[in-house]
C-alpha cells in the first residue's frame, strides 16, 4: 500500500498533497482538546500496526488499521495517518516523503467515508454494530487498495493490473482488519463509551 518514491508523476503527487492538506486541516479544526490522547494512541497503533505480521495460511499480512482509525476518529484520521506515515517513511523507509500526500489520502479518505456511512450503525447495538464495524474495517482496506490502484493508473503498470494485484493481496488483510475492528469497537463501547459520543 505504500507507493514508493519516484513512481508517480508530479501532477498526481501534487493532487494527493493538496487533498491531504485539506483533509488534515479539517481534521485538526474538528479536533478538540479532550480527544488528543485518543488520536495519539490510534496514530501510534497505526504506526506500529504495519509491523505486526499476522500469519494467514502459508504467508502473512500486516495490519493497516485505517478502518479502525476512521470509525473512532472521523476526520481526525487524516492527521493521525499523516503522522504515522511520515514516521514510517522517515524511520523505516516505507513509501517516501514526496508520496506522503498520496499515500495519506489513499488510506485516510476511505476511513472518513467509513466514518460517515457506517458509524451510525456502529453506535447501535448487537449484530448491526458488529456487521457495521466489520464492514468499516474491511472496506477501508479495499478502498485504500482501490485508490492506490487509481494513483497507479497513469504509470506503466496501469490501473487494472495494479487493482487486481492489490485486491488479491489484501483479501486476507480485509478479513483480519474487519475482525480487529469488530473486537476493538465492541470493547471500546463497553469500557469507554464516551470515545464514540463526540462526532
Amino acid at each position: 500500500m505504500h507507493i514508493s518514491e519516484g513512481v508517480l508523476s508530479p501532477a498526481i503527487l501534487g493532487l494527493g498533497a493538496a487533498l491531504t492538506a485539506v483533509g488534515t486541516a479539517i481534521g485538526l479544526r474538528r479536533l478538540d482538546y479532550d480527544r488528543l490522547m485518543t488520536v495519539a494512541i490510534l496514530a501510534a497503533a497505526f504506526f506500529v500496526g504495519s509491523l505486526i505480521h499476522v500469519p494467514i495460511g502459508p504467508s502473512n499480512a500486516h495490519l493497516i488499521l485505517n478502518g479502525l482509525l476512521g470509525a473512532i476518529l472521523g476526520w481526525a484520521a487524516f492527521p493521525a495517518i499523516l503522522v504515522g506515515l511520515m514516521l514510517q517513511a522517515v524511520l523505516f523507509q516505507y513509501g517516501g516523503i514526496t508520496v506522503l500526500g498520496v499515500n495519506t489520502f489513499n488510506m485516510a479518505f476511505p476511513a472518513v467515508l467509513g466514518f460517515y456511512l457506517l458509524r451510525p450503525a456502529m453506535v447501535g447495538s448487537g449484530r448491526a454494530r458488529s456487521v457495521a464495524a466489520f464492514c468499516c474495517g474491511a472496506l477501508s482496506v479495499a478502498g485504500a487498495g482501490l485508490l492506490t490502484a487509481l494513483s497507479l493508473a497513469f504509470t506503466a503498470e496501469g490501473f487494472l493490473r495494479a487493482a487486481q494485484l492489490l485486491f488479491l493481496a489484501h483479501v486476507p488483510v480485509m478479513v483480519v482488519e474487519g475482525v480487529v475492528t469488530v473486537l476493538a469497537v465492541s470493547f471500546l463501547i463497553r469500557v469507554r463509551p464516551e470515545v464514540f459520543s463526540i462526532s
Partner: peptide
C-alpha cells in the same frame, strides 16, 4: 488470493 498474496504484500 492467499498464494498470490505471498508475492505481493
Amino acid at each position: 488470493a492467499i498464494m498470490v498474496h505471498s508475492l505481493a504484500l
